[in-house]
C-alpha cells in the first residue's frame, strides 16, 4: 500500500468505530435481549407468533406500507417525469419545492396534516362547502390519514431517486422512438417506463422498507386506531416494559427487511440499478 492509501484507510477508522459502537453493538444487544429477557429461550418468539394482536399489527403494517409504496411511486413518477421535461430555469424552482419538506420536522408535518384533514379542516370545508359531499370525510385518525402522511413523507425521496434515473436516460432514444413513428403514449409506455425500471425498483424498495419502520406519522395520524409495528414496539418498551417482546419483534422486522432486500436484489431491474447500466 502506498502511504496515501494507508492514510485513506486510516481515515475510515473513526467511522468504523462509531458504527460498531452505536449501531452494530446495540443491534446485537437487541438480538441477545430477545432470547434472554425475561428468561433464556425462544419464548418471546413463540408468544409473538401466537399473538393475534401482533398478527393484526403486522397485517396493518404490510397493508399500509404497500399502499404507501404504490401511491408514492405513482405520484413521484409523475413529478419526476414532469421535472425532466421542464426548462432548466423552471426545473430549479420545482426541484427546490420538492426539497422543502426535508427541512420541516416530521412532527410539524404530521400536525399540519391533522389540521388540514380533520373534520373542520381545510379539505372538509372545501368539499362540504362546494356540496361535493354532505357529511365531512373521515380523513384522519385512521388508515387514510396515516397513508396520506406517509406518502407525503416519502415522496421527496422517491422523486429524487426516480428523477436521477430519468435524467440519465439519453433523450435521443425518445427522439429515435418518435422518428420511428411512436406516438406519445407509446413512447411513454414502451420507452420511458422500461428504461426507468431501475429507478422505479430502487425507489420501490427504499420506500417499502422505510415504510415498514414508520413511527411518528402513524402514531399521530392513526391516533391509536392504525397501529404499525414500530409503534407497537415503542409501546412495549415505554408503557408495558416488555423488553423481550419488543426486541423479538424488532428482530423479526430486521429479518423481514433482510429477506425483502434479498428477494429484491434477485430482480434484474435492481441488479441493473446497482451495476449502473440501463435495461
Amino acid at each position: 500500500m502506498r502511504p496515501f492509501d494507508r492514510w485513506a484507510v486510516g481515515l475510515t477508522v473513526p467511522a468504523v468505530l462509531l458504527t460498531t459502537l452505536f449501531y452494530v453493538l446495540p443491534i446485537a444487544q437487541v438480538l441477545v435481549l430477545s432470547v434472554t429477557e425475561p428468561a433464556p429461550g425462544l419464548a418471546n418468539y413463540e408468544q409473538l407468533l401466537g399473538s393475534r394482536a401482533v398478527a393484526r399489527v403486522v397485517m396493518t403494517t404490510l397493508e399500509v406500507s404497500l399502499w404507501t409504496t404504490a401511491l408514492t411511486i405513482a405520484a413521484s413518477y409523475v413529478v419526476a417525469y414532469a421535472l425532466v421535461q421542464m426548462r432548466p430555469s423552471v426545473r430549479r424552482v420545482a426541484l427546490f419545492m420538492v426539497l422543502v419538506p426535508f427541512w420541516i420536522s416530521v412532527l410539524v408535518r404530521a400536525f399540519s396534516w391533522i389540521t388540514i384533514l380533520r373534520r373542520e379542516g381545510l379539505v372538509n370545508l372545501a368539499v362540504t362547502g362546494l356540496g361535493i359531499v354532505d357529511e365531512p370525510l373521515q380523513l384522519v385518525h385512521n388508515r387514510t390519514g396515516v397513508i396520506i402522511g406517509m406518502v407525503h413523507y416519502m415522496m421527496p425521496f422517491a422523486v429524487l431517486l426516480i428523477y436521477a434515473n430519468l435524467a440519465g436516460i439519453d433523450r435521443r432514444i425518445m427522439q429515435a422512438g418518435r422518428s420511428l413513428g411512436a406516438r406519445p403514449m407509446t413512447v411513454f409506455w414502451k420507452l420511458w417506463v422500461p428504461l426507468s425500471a431501475p429507478g422505479i425498483a430502487v425507489a420501490t424498495l427504499f420506500v417499502f422498507i422505510f415504510s415498514l419502520g414508520f413511527l411518528i406519522t402513524p402514531t399521530l395520524l392513526g391516533a391509536g386506531r392504525t397501529v404499525m409495528v414500530a409503534e407497537y414496539i415503542s409501546v412495549q418498551i415505554t408503557n408495558t416494559l416488555r423488553w423481550g417482546v419488543a426486541t423479538g419483534l424488532s428482530t423479526m422486522l430486521l429479518v423481514a427487511v433482510g429477506f425483502v432486500v434479498f428477494i429484491a436484489m434477485r430482480q434484474p431491474a435492481l441488479r441493473a440499478a446497482f451495476s449502473g447500466r440501463q435495461g
Partner: peptide, 9 residues
C-alpha cells in the same frame, strides 16, 4: 442518430 440511440432494453 449520432451514437445510434438504439433501445437498450
Amino acid at each position: 442518430f449520432q451514437g445510434y440511440a438504439l433501445f437498450p432494453h
